[in-house]
């Protein structure tokens, strides 16, 4: 079973994954434009400088976020 996971120690808090995630974009369109989400309904968000999963159950394991993470802090395993 493939799951979405994060390694907060590796995370730089850049938010690339938050912006790249297509599901985030459909839930909170401003993320697709590069802004922070306006709702905690999204899959992941940067909180206190690190990435945090809020709704990993919404993840379809499409593989987009790992492609944009510069430090492999978000991954599918």
């Amino acid at each position: 079973m493939v799951e979405l996971k994060v390694d907060q120690d590796k995370c730089l808090g850049c938010g690339n994954c938050v912006v790249a995630c297509p599901v985030n974009g459909s839930i909170s369109p401003e993320t697709a434009g590069g802004h922070g989400p306006k709702t905690e309904d999204v899959i992941m968000m940067v909180e206190n400088g690190v990435i945090k999963l809020f709704n990993e159950d919404k993840c379809t394991r499409c593989g987009t976020c790992p492609l944009f993470c510069p430090t492999d802090a978000i991954f599918l395993e």
């Binding site: 493939v2 379809t60 394991r61 499409c62 593989g63 987009t64 790992p66 492609l67 991954f75 599918l76 395993e77």
Partner: peptide
Amino acid sequence: LGEIGAIERTGVDE
């Protein structure tokens, strides 16, 4: 069907 996106794009070894 497996997690095709994860397998094809992120190298999940399944």
